[in-house]
């Protein structure tokens, strides 16, 4: 076990402990506060160690509202962070993320269409996935057709262009939406929110996330080789094409699943892989789990703040931007060296 493995283990344990602590905190605070005693009894009862007359309201709040929401925030955070880590590696570009590539907006457009057509949550996810995949394909093709000196910049610019096109189409969908029923849903959800999460949403999104996680884990070594670029990967013995397509599709599927349940939440996918890389380096075997834990902690914290800060819910996308933007500026100052 070398030094980096020890560092990784320490980070993983610390972040894991932090995540558990945050989860307990998030489960207890809210509009209907739940005491630590009630929470402890609920946990003991649910693992069969105690059967207790837990307060019926507390139990209902935890089972139907609080815990699905905590779980959704964890899943969305982990998923957006791992998608970000994959995009950054696959495009050899530390400046890309689901939101900058326009994938989130593309998936949002697909999902909004789904809402407009009053489809089921599974179909909305499918629409989101198709929207996200189309966006990333168009962005990538556009960027690879424009042969310029600075591919990093061109990729980011293509993402912005296609993302804003998708954004405009989204506005069009909003105009067409029913102003009393669909429009508020679309608008609120576009800013990102876990307010409307129920257990059904969670069970619909989880399979897609787990399926997408499989290639990321399987190809964890090849991810590193592919992040060196096509020519080096090929001369080292890998045909980059197929693996890259599979991984980009997996990252897009994850993003779409998160978008379908929680709306468009920016910055997490850009910033968390950076911070994870500062902690444990770029090796994907370590980067993936640490990014996931970090993204989960961050999202859970932000969501808990979003629902307790004021009387009304603050859309989470607003908070992630307020936190993510300054953090990213700080990252630009500190990590510029590696980005020539």
């Amino acid at each position: 076990m070398d030094r980096t493995d020890t560092v990784t283990a320490v980070w993983a344990l610390s972040l894991g402990a932090l995540l558990i602590g945050l989860s307990l905190l998030a489960a207890s605070i809210g509009q209907y506060p739940i005491s630590w005693d009630d929470l402890a009894q609920y946990i003991a009862a649910s693992i069969g160690m105690a059967e207790g007359p837990l307060d019926a309201t507390a139990s209902l709040v935890l089972t139907e509202v609080r815990l699905p929401r905590v779980a959704a925030a964890i899943v969305a955070g982990a998923v957006l962070a791992s998608a970000g880590a994959v995009y950054q590696g696959m495009f050899r570009n530390p400046l890309v993320s689901p939101d900058i590539l326009g994938v989130s907006t593309g998936a949002g457009l697909g999902a909004a269409l789904g809402i407009l057509l009053s489809l089921s949550i599974v179909m909305i996810q499918l629409f989101a996935f198709v929207g996200g995949l189309l966006t990333v394909a168009v962005v990538y093709l556009l960027a690879s057709r424009i042969q310029r000196q600075d591919p990093t910049l061109i990729l980011v610019l293509s993402g912005i262009v296609i993302g804003s096109l998708a954004g405009a189409s989204l506005s069009l969908v909003k105009i067409l939406a029913d102003p009393y029923d669909q429009l508020p849903a679309i608008t609120f959800w576009l800013l990102g929110s876990f307010a409307a999460i129920d257990r059904g949403d969670l069970t619909a999104a989880l399979p897609a996330c787990l399926v997408a996680l499989v290639p990321m884990i399987l190809f964890r070594w090849r991810m590193n080789v592919l992040s060196l670029g096509d020519e080096e990967a090929k001369s080292l013995g890998i045909n980059p094409g197929q693996t890259r397509v599979i991984l980009i599709a997996a990252a897009t599927l994850m993003t779409s699943a998160a978008v379908a349940i929680a709306g468009v939440i920016g910055w997490v996918g850009l910033v968390t892989p950076h911070i994870a890389r500062m902690m444990v380096g770029p090796n994907f075997s370590r980067l993936l789990p640490i990014s996931m834990l970090l993204g989960a902690c961050f999202m859970l914290l932000v969501d808990t703040v979003a629902r307790t800060l004021t009387q009304t819910e603050t859309p989470i996308g607003i908070l992630t931007a307020f936190i993510g933007a300054p953090v990213f500026v700080w990252l630009l100052f500190t990590t510029r060296r590696g980005w020539q």
Partner: peptide, 11 residues
């Protein structure tokens, strides 16, 4: 190959 630009700080 000739010196390549690498993005990520692998050891």
């Amino acid at each position: 190959p000739q010196i390549q630009q690498h993005v990520f700080p692998y050891t």
